[in-house]
């Protein structure tokens, strides 16, 4: 659960490789705007930035406390940073309908949503692909490689050489399970096995 910045592959994700958008070097970008339209536009920009950044770094979840010190939220060259509180605002916005549900608080999904205060909102999923989309991607790969009706372990899906070229290679197992659940619901897959050795069969 406390998978902080679970960098999976780490193969190509160099620190300087990410090209930040131009507004990343615009000082007011790091102050949340009170004016509504400007704020919406700003949050949208932040959401785009976080998704792009996570996709580039192959991050599937963020721990906010740690992330605010990374170059995602902190522009060292400019000497500006987004405060932890504002970062929470941004993630909260991404979690909402407005932000396209591109994020989700880890641990908040159970019951107590937000009520437990800032402590509960320490880490979040960043869905640069939503679980439904991941399901589609995996299904497409299974289709393309003709592995229907075969049984694959989750480990195979994540770590085997066969999936190396795929985006879901090195994905967070938790997220993979959620994506597979989507497929199960659609009746396209079946998950079985115990905690450590989960297998999945695609139809």
């Amino acid at each position: 659960m406390d998978s902080t910045t679970s960098s999976g592959g780490g193969g190509g994700g160099g620190g300087g490789g990410f090209a930040f958008p131009p507004h990343y070097s615009f000082p007011p970008f790091f102050t949340l705007q009170p004016a509504l339209t400007t704020r919406a536009s700003q949050l949208h920009s932040w959401s785009q930035l976080i998704q792009a950044y996570c996709r580039h770094r192959r991050l599937f979840a963020l721990s906010l406390v740690d992330a605010v010190d990374t170059d995602l939220f902190c522009n060292a060259a400019l000497g500006r940073r987004l405060s932890l509180r504002d970062a929470r605002e941004v993630i909260a916005w991404m979690c909402g309908k407005e932000g396209g549900e591109r994020a989700e608080w880890i641990g908040a999904g159970n019951a107590a949503k937000g009520k437990e205060g800032a402590e509960a909102r320490a880490a979040c999923w960043v869905f640069w692909r939503r679980p439904e989309e991941w399901a589609g991607v995996i299904e497409g790969w299974v289709d393309a490689t003709g592995q229907k009706n075969t049984v694959l372990t989750l480990y195979e899906l994540l770590e085997s050489d066969a999936t190396k070229s795929q985006e879901f290679h090195g994905m967070d197992p938790e997220l993979l399970k959620r994506s597979l659940q989507v497929l199960v619901k659609r009746g396209k897959a079946q998950v079985f096995g115990s905690e450590d050795s989960l297998g999945v069969k695609f139809f």
Binding site: H23, P28, Q33, T38, S41, S45
Partner: peptide, 16 residues
Amino acid sequence: CREQRLDGLRFWENWL
């Protein structure tokens, strides 16, 4: 748009 800094509030052209 605004920028809140330690030394006060500044207003910028809205590039956001």
